[in-house]
Amino acid sequence: MRWRHLWGAFGVAAMVLAGVGGPSRAPAQTANFHPCNAQPALPICQHGYGRRVAAARWGAAPAPLDPDASAQAPLVTRDPAKEIEKLKSAAIFVKDMDTSDVLFARGEDVVRPIASIVKLMTALVVVDAGLPMDELIAIDASDVDVPSELPSRLAVGARLSRADLLHLALTSSENSAAHALGRTYPGGMEAFVEAMNAQAKALGMEDSRFVEPVGLSNENVSSARDLARLIHAASGRTLIRAFTTDARYSIEGRTFRNTNMLVGRPHWEILASKTGTTREAGDCLVMMVRLGGRNLAMVLLDAQGMSGARFGDAVRLRRVLDSRMAAK
């Protein structure tokens, strides 16, 4: 068993409560899939009528919002141990990317599907290829017909710049935009997937494998430890950093909102982020955040429970980390 170094004297208690140790192989739970659970910022989820329509279409009522995910949730705690007990994510990894200190770890080496977190790798490949961002790309039927439970908001024939597609893929996790980016890569989709895996190897992501650029295939897999490397690399690219931290993006008269509820909130300095959700992957969130003068990679995979549980977990972790900083 490899012990994980946690923060300060609180570390031993945290390890006992969080179950830190060797890789956990517990199977993922079945998520209560509903688009308003996965992406509360979707326009359809903002009004009662839209929520009822979504419930009829997907056959599951949206769960209540995790109170720790709400905008009014406090960011302080007097009981860090209790916060750890409430964590709902199967895999959690928090690392100071400047010092390599691991601040929290649970199930960080388990290899699992990662849903739309894949789009971060899609973005890295596109940006690093130096492709012209002003080039117009037409959405075709293959982009719209990806096997998603959420309908595409882009119409076949729509012409958008590569920058617009990248923006939509990262801000609102638009599947058809990510597919179009892979389809139009030099050499086509096969070459794009090869580039994704080559990039993963270059980053030292030994647990990761990519088969498509959208994130809908369960064969796109990684570990929380690997994803800390990915979000750190992504945060170093200006476009990715800007697009993932936009609260919303408007184009052609439509507004696309960020799927990360924490983006744009006061007292959160988010450097880069991405969400992901499928039935098998559960609700996932990766972020680079600036906290207490430290650049932290925060990875939360397969969060279960109420709507926004992954965001609630991020708040709970923030409370724990802040409490340790205040005690120093």
Rank of each mutant, 00 (worst) to 15 (best):
L75Q: 10
L131M: 09
I92Q: 10
E108V: 04
L150P: 00
V146D: 06
S89P: 05
P64W: 05
I117P: 00
A71M: 03
Q72A: 15
S70P: 04
M133C: 02
L154S: 12
K119N: 07
R112K: 09
A129C: 13
A81E: 06
S70N: 05
A63S: 15
A63K: 09
L154H: 07
A61T: 12
E149T: 06
V76F: 07
I117H: 02
I92E: 09
L65A: 14
W58C: 10
D134K: 13
A115S: 12
L65D: 05
I84F: 02
S148P: 11
A141P: 01
L131P: 10
V102G: 06
K88P: 01
I137R: 14
K119W: 01
A105W: 03
A73R: 05
A115P: 11
T99N: 08
A129W: 05
D98S: 11
D134C: 03
V156C: 10
P80K: 00
L131V: 10
R57A: 14
I84C: 04
P151S: 13
K119E: 05
S100D: 15
M121L: 13
S89K: 03
A115H: 05
D68P: 08
T122P: 01
D145R: 13
V111L: 03
V76D: 13
A90G: 14
D98T: 07
A69G: 11
A155I: 09
P151A: 14
V118C: 10
I117D: 02
A138C: 04
E149A: 11
V144E: 07
L87R: 03
I139M: 14
L120V: 07
A91Q: 15
S148G: 10
P80S: 01
R153Y: 11
A123M: 08
L87D: 04
K82Y: 02
P132D: 09
V125C: 13
D145E: 13
A73D: 04
F93P: 08
R112G: 05
A91D: 12
L103E: 06
L75D: 04
S152V: 15
S70G: 14
T77L: 01
M121R: 05
A91F: 00
D98E: 09
A69Q: 10
A69S: 15
V127W: 00
D66C: 06
R112T: 12
P151Q: 11
A123C: 09
A63D: 13
P151Y: 07
L103F: 05
M121Y: 01
A129L: 08
V118H: 00
E135P: 06
F93A: 01
I139A: 09
P80Y: 02
P64Y: 05
Q72C: 03
S116M: 03
D140Q: 09
V146R: 06
A141W: 00
A138D: 04
P62A: 10
P132C: 07
S148D: 15
K86L: 13
D101I: 07
P74R: 07
D98H: 02
I92M: 06
R106N: 14
A61P: 03
G107S: 08
P74K: 03
P67W: 00
S142R: 15
F104M: 14
V76S: 13
I117K: 03
L87P: 01
S142I: 08
E83D: 15
